[in-house]
C-alpha cells in the first residue's frame, strides 16, 4: 500500500498531465502496478464524493430538526433553477464517469494486450485441478512455474464446468469454460510464490481448488523447463510404445 503522498501525487499527475504518467513507463506496462495505481485514485475519488455528500446530509439533519416550526419551508424553484439542479449535477457526474472510464480503458488495454515474447502456457481447468501444458510439452498440475522477468500468457479452457483462474497477487482473473478459449496474462518480476485460487463455484471441492504460481530465477527455470520437457517426451514415447 503506497503512502498517501504517493497516492495524491499519482492522482494529481493523472488529473493535470495525463501524458506525464506515461513518460517514464517501462516498455512492458504491468497491469498489476496499474491496478494498484488506479485503485488508489479511485479511493480518493469516492471518498471525496462520499464525505462531501454525507457532510451535507448530516448538516441538514442537524440544522433542520424540528424546533419552532411544525412545517417545512421548502424553496420554490424557478423553472431555470429546477433544470439547473438536474443538468449541472448530471454533467458533473458524467465528467467524473468519463474521466474514470478513460482511466479504466487505458488500464484495460494493458490487461488485454499481450506483450511480444510472452511465455504461452495452455491451461485446462477441471474439477478440481489446474492442468498446465508448456510449449515443449511439459505438463504440471496446480503448479505454474514461470521465469522472472518474462510475461506469461495463459490460454484457458475447461474440461467440465466454469472455473475462474484467479491470481490475487497479479490482480487478474478470467473464467475458463468448456467450448471457449479465454486468455489472461501477467508479468512476474521477482522470484517467489503466489496463490492461485478458483473464483467461480465449481462443486464440492471448489474451496480446495488452489494452486501456486512459482516464479523462478530465469536460469533455474530454464533447467527445470528442459528436464520437464524431456520427461514429458519420454512419457509420450513410452505411452506410444504401449499403445
Amino acid at each position: 500500500m503506497p503512502e498517501l503522498r504517493t497516492v495524491l501525487a499519482a492522482a494529481l499527475t493523472g488529473l493535470l498531465v495525463p501524458g506525464a504518467a506515461m513518460a517514464g513507463a517501462e516498455p512492458i506496462a504491468d497491469p498489476a502496478a496499474g491496478w494498484d495505481r488506479l485503485w488508489d485514485e479511485m479511493l480518493v475519488d469516492i471518498t471525496v464524493i462520499g464525505v462531501a455528500f454525507a457532510a451535507v446530509a448530516a448538516w441538514f439533519m442537524w440544522r433542520y430538526r424540528r424546533r419552532d416550526r411544525a412545517e417545512g419551508d421548502p424553496p420554490r424553484l424557478s423553472a431555470a433553477a429546477a433544470v439547473g439542479w438536474a443538468v449541472i449535477p448530471a454533467f458533473a457526474f458524467m465528467a467524473d464517469d468519463f474521466f474514470l472510464a478513460a482511466k479504466g480503458w487505458e488500464l484495460w488495454k494493458d490487461y488485454r494486450t499481450v506483450p511480444e515474447g510472452a511465455l504461452e502456457v495452455r491451461l485446462e481447468s477441471a474439477m478440481w485441478s489446474w492442468n498446465y501444458t508448456y510449449p515443449n510439452g511439459a505438463v504440471t498440475v496446480n503448479e505454474l512455474r514461470v521465469p522472472a522477468g518474462r510475461p506469461v500468457l495463459l490460454r484457458m479452457t475447461s474440461r467440465d464446468v466454469v472455473h475462474s483462474h484467479f491470481i490475487p497477487d497479479f490482480r487478474v482473473k478470467e473464467d475458463s469454460m468448456p467450448g471457449r478459449i479465454t486468455y489472461l496474462w501477467f508479468y512476474p518480476k521477482e522470484p517467489g510464490e503466489h496463490v492461485v485460487t478458483c473464483a467461480e463455484y465449481c462443486g464440492l471441492l471448489h474451496s480446495r481448488m488452489a494452486g501456486k504460481v512459482i516464479v523462478m530465477a530465469p536460469d533455474a527455470f530454464e533447467a527445470w523447463y528442459r528436464a520437464a520437457g524431456r520427461k514429458a517426451a519420454a512419457e509420450a514415447a513410452a505411452g506410444g510404445e504401449e499403445a
Binding site: P31, G34, W35, L38, W39, M42, D45, I46, I49, G50, L100, A101, K103, G104, W105, L107, W108, D110, Y111, S164, F166, P168, R171, V172, K173, E174, A199, E200
Partner: peptide, 18 residues
C-alpha cells in the same frame, strides 16, 4: 460509491468474485 470501482472493467478483473 463502492459500486464505482466494480464498474471499471479493469479494476473488476481483480475485484470480481471477491
Amino acid at each position: 460509491l463502492t459500486g464505482i470501482p466494480n464498474a471499471i472493467a479493469s479494476l473488476d478483473l481483480h475485484l470480481q468474485d471477491t
